[in-house]
Design a protein around this nucleic acid. Structure first.
Lengths: 252, 252
DNA sequence: GTACGCCTGGATGTATACATAAAAAATATA
DNA sequence: TATATTTTTTATGTATACATCCAGGCGTAC
């Protein structure tokens, strides 16, 4: 009964990894609501995992920023104000800008440039047709977008920077894909996605020409798309649920 | 016997905190050398703390970046190449630049500006005398410098940014005080410290005038002092030991 | 002399027991 | 009825036991 019937990626993982994935899922899906104290025995009962691995998963999630420690012990689910989300996006843009600048200044190998170009081309191909944005096309865009940002991360060729970037992206609303579902429901969605990919293409150009300052500015501006989407969500709260981890957002 | 006779800050802390502090100390002091696998039973024996709190401290240190996981299990002490140190400093400068820009753009309260000004004044007072840089004067500079950077962190008034900044500063060589001892042994130490504080003062000016771009540029340039000190260390390996965590540095 | 395999020592990951301390509930009281 | 107080319940932090797995050494065979 406690066996996970899903043949997902959690098959042969350690208990700690399972606990981490499950807890993150519970937090982002709102099964554990913002501000709520997390009871280790309850989670242990719910997941069928003993307290020890759950405990280390909790520590990891605290470092990740999804949990905050309680003075008297234990953790609670972190709540995020709109200002904090704005700042998290700004941080991501700044870090991606840094990665882009360093990559441009230091030079990116032709293989990596080719992979980046191919990625941008693929996204353009997905967006080429003027007909409506179907679910499969949208999913393809999401995958392409994630891949592009991953390739940029690799292009800077720096482990310490990658670590910091990963951390900046770890909050769901700060991730490059965080607000895409919000963007997709806008009437001019296809257009804004094309503009975003134009920025991708411009970045590859800048990397190739070793234009560090331009590369940095581009990625900063690129992240502002998420800021716009955040504002769009404010104007139309009905679409708030499209944001991953929406239940963590609290108005301040 | 296993009682810590030092009345330090570790008195009434939890075992986990004690393990964290002790392990960090052991790593930075080179008691555990770079690349070495950390044996939990050995550390437990050495510290008189059971494996459980040590284990969570290890997880924290991994998130902090001082340890890296071993595929087959456990952790090893991370080794840092000069390139990685350079990047860590660059990241710190970029994040402090972001904090400065946001603080300037959003405005800093007059009380905070006053505290920043007072801090800069105090540092200038420490550096006023042209006589040699005594140990006590140097210690006063270190304290003032740490305080200034802490005040900047507060000035941006953003928890998410603070968290990310703390992380950027957590590597010893990336910290604002990381290379100060290297700087202090240079013949023109007093001068370079004065220049550094001039940058501090300029930042307060920029914050006060809400000049975001200038504030950002200043903190980026400010971090480059550490880069210069890093290069100075390369030219004169005899002073390498002045860097905290020197044993973690490996030439690549 | 070298390569292969087995075997022993030790380490990690996990579960669990227990003491302390906090939170919640229930009772008594103004 | 609201509040203060005591009691009960529950959670956390820590130590420890144990199974599995990895690493390294020793012996053997070629």
């Amino acid at each position: 009964m406690p066996e996970t019937p899903t043949p997902s990626s959690e098959e042969n993982a350690s208990q700690t990894v399972r606990a981490l994935l499950r807890l993150r899922e519970m937090i982002l899906d709102g099964e554990l609501s913002a501000g709520e104290r997390i009871s280790e025995p309850v989670v242990a009962e719910l997941t069928g995992i003993s307290r020890t691995p759950i405990r280390t998963a909790l520590v990891r999630l605290q470092e990740e920023g999804l949990l905050e420690p309680i003075r008297s012990g234990g953790f609670r689910v972190r709540a995020f104000s709109l200002d904090e989300i704005r700042d998290a996006i700004e941080i991501r843009g700044t870090m991606e800008g840094l990665a882009a600048r360093l990559a441009a200044e230091r030079g990116v190998s032709s293989e990596r440039l080719a992979r980046l170009t191919a990625c941008v081309d693929e996204i353009d191909a997905v967006l080429a047709d003027d007909s409506g944005l179907s679910d499969t096309r949208f999913a393809a865009y999401v995958a392409g977008n994630a891949r592009f940002h991953e390739l940029l991360e690799q292009a800077c060729d720096s482990d310490v920077l990658r670590r910091q970037l990963d951390r900046a992206k770890s909050l769901p609303f700060a991730s490059p894909n965080g607000f895409l579902r919000v963007q997709a429901v806008a009437p001019d969605a296809l257009n804004t996605l094309r503009i975003a990919n134009a920025q991708h293409r411009a970045l590859v150009e800048a990397l190739s020409a070793r234009e560090g300052s331009r590369a940095e500015a581009l990625m900063r501006e690129h992240a502002r798309i998420a800021q716009r989407n955040l504002h769009a969500t404010l104007a139309n709260p009905g679409i708030k649920a499209l944001i991953p981890g929406a239940s963590l957002i609290v108005d301040s």
